[in-house]
Amino acid sequence: MNIFRLAGDMTHLASVLVLLLKIHTIKSCAGVSLKTQELYVIVFATRYLDIFTSFVSIYNSLMKLIFLGSSFSIVWYMRYHKAVHRTYDREQDTFRHWFLMLPCILLALLIHEKFTFFEVMWTFSLYLEAVAILPQLVLLQRTRNIDNLTGQYIFLLGGYRGFYILNWIYRYFTEPHYVHWITWISGLVQTLLYADFFYYYFLSWKNNKKLQLPA
């Protein structure tokens, strides 16, 4: 494991903690897209199917459990916790899951490294993760008023993707035969989706103003 991969995982972990902090202590999920969170549950559930069959390290298994557990609990809170659910922007969060999932299923069936069940599911999770943030970005655009925790959550998520790209570049030059086009391209697409958000995040940070997206 290199420093970029570790930094990526830690930013990912931090993003989840920020979101849980907002939901658990402030009892609010305002500005958070349930659609995106449900897509993350599907992403982790399909990617970590191998959790009992393949062992890489204690670190990996532990992180898989954390990401599975946290994504499930976030969705549970937003759906079933009365106080949290009341703050959910249901009318604004209208993105259709199938609209994103169907193309990802088809693409995973067509383009994959190996045609096995686990590999196709893994590939599907990569494609779906690439676009899972879209409902969240759409919701931000609609509500426009973004509180600090929600802004930090998305900033950290984008940071995690950025560090993973550095990790792939590092591994490409240091490990023989490390070539994974599917992972790289979907990862790159995912990171690019954050570009616009990052632009306005830095602008608000530079001007020391509250983050607001243009209509």
Binding site: D9, S54, V56, N60, W122, Y164, N167, E175, H177, H180
Partner: peptide
């Protein structure tokens, strides 16, 4: 080890 290497990532 017939697993693709990227499966050691999260």
């Amino acid at each position: 080890q017939d697993q693709p290497q990227n499966h050691d990532e999260l």
